[in-house]
């Protein structure tokens, strides 16, 4: 594998809310490789956004990194306190695309200005040089007539076009890492595919490392080299795309895959995961997924599983991999992924 660009070690993030403490990220150790596209998937509330926000110092005021470290270019970002320190990272090294393009642009500034702001901050470009570059970037993200469009305001753009602008802003920073936090969730399906394609092209063109957050595994198949599955503030399984799709090991990953609409059979009810994620205000004992797992083992309720290595690239936090555990087969439907896998990849 290639060089590690960012690494977290046993990262813990907490929030204080009305006098109580919520443990949102529970000991995440993750390596992100230079040039790869890593997808983070998981249900709503599993901590995908919080995890990536810690990389840029963008946690809400009531949140903090409780312990652990975030290594990037020889510095531990978990120790960063001041705005001055974070300004060396934000935009410059790590840029972000947010979920809702309708609200992530300032409605009272032209999009040219908003892209220009990033150019001036990170490349010192101003005036005509900046204008030229803004137009190039707009073309890059597929916006035609850039000279005219750059003078327009966000309300003159549709949702998909606005997301292109947001992506243009991120790219204008020329970062090393691009974090896309559910960039297509708010868009309709045809536009989703276009934006996804655009992100893929830009990653290649600008040599970006991409962390792509989504709760839709169907989308992931198209962008990711590797997939990390998050549950209740923890990464429960991580592996290459092929490993996660074709030989998943964690019961939660099985459940996520089984609920893919692509695997549904006409007329049959789609699989859905029973129960709700654990309350992160309480201390979690054992495997966080156990209460929702019909085949949970006794030990799942008592002790938190360690990571078991399946291959060099694939590891899973699950007691089923223990030599003493009984053999539990993945659900039958998952076999359809191998037969209909082509389907998943070509949306």
């Amino acid at each position: 594998m290639s060089e590690v660009i960012l690494r977290t070690e046993d990262l813990n993030v907490k929030f204080s809310l009305r006098g109580r403490v919520l443990h949102a990220i529970r000991g995440v150790s993750l390596e992100v490789y230079k040039g790869e596209s890593l997808a983070i998937v998981g249900e709503s509330g599993s901590g995908k956004s919080v995890l990536t926000k810690t990389f840029m110092g963008l946690l809400d005021q009531n949140g903090w990194v409780d312990s652990g470290s975030i290594w990037f270019e020889g510095n531990d970002l978990a120790q960063y306190k001041t705005e001055k320190e974070w300004l060396t990272i934000r935009g410059k090294k790590i840029a972000m695309v947010l979920q809702d393009p309708m609200t992530s642009l300032n409605p009272l500034k032209t999009i040219g200005k908003q892209i220009g702001e990033a150019l001036e901050l990170h490349q010192g470009l101003k005036g005509d040089d900046a204008n030229k570059r803004i137009q190039e970037i707009l073309l890059d993200v597929g916006i035609k007539e850039p000279a005219r469009r750059m003078k327009q305001y966000p309300h003159q753009f549709s949702g998909g076009m606005r997301q292109r602008v947001v992506i243009a802003i991120a790219v204008a920073c020329q970062p090393d890492i691009l974090i896309c936090d559910e960039p297509t969730t708010a868009l309709d399906v045809t536009i989703q595919a276009q934006i996804l394609g655009l992100i893929r092209d830009l990653i290649r063109k600008y040599n970006l490392t991409c962390i792509y957050i989504t709760h839709d595994l169907g989308v992931v198949a198209n962008v990711a080299d590797r997939i990390a599955v998050m549950y209740a503030g923890d990464i429960v399984e991580i592996g290459t795309s092929e490993e996660i799709f074709f030989s998943p090991k964690h019961p939660y990953t099985w459940a996520l895959l089984s609920s893919l609409p692509q695997l549904g059979v006409k007329g049959e009810e789609l699989f859905s995961i029973r129960g709700t994620p654990p309350n992160l205000f309480n201390e979690i004992k054992g495997d966080a997924f156990a209460p929702r797992n019909p085949k949970a083992l006794n030990i799942d309720f008592k002790e938190r599983p360690p990571y078991f290595d399946i291959s060099d690239t694939h590891k899973v936090r699950c007691w089923l991999q223990d030599p003493r555990a009984p053999k539990v087969e993945p659900p039958q439907v998952l076999e359809r992924i191998s037969t209909e896998g082509g389907n998943l990849y070509e949306q």
Binding site: E83, M96, L98, N106, L108
Partner: peptide, 29 residues
């Protein structure tokens, strides 16, 4: 509390500039 403030922050604008050039201006309108 709006998203565009988050995005401005994420692209590296100082909180001083965010308050003046984005937030104050928009709130004054």
């Amino acid at each position: 509390n709006k998203d565009y403030v988050q995005l401005a922050k994420a692209k590296g604008v100082t909180s001083q500039d965010i308050t003046m050039a984005h937030v104050f201006r928009n709130a004054f309108v």
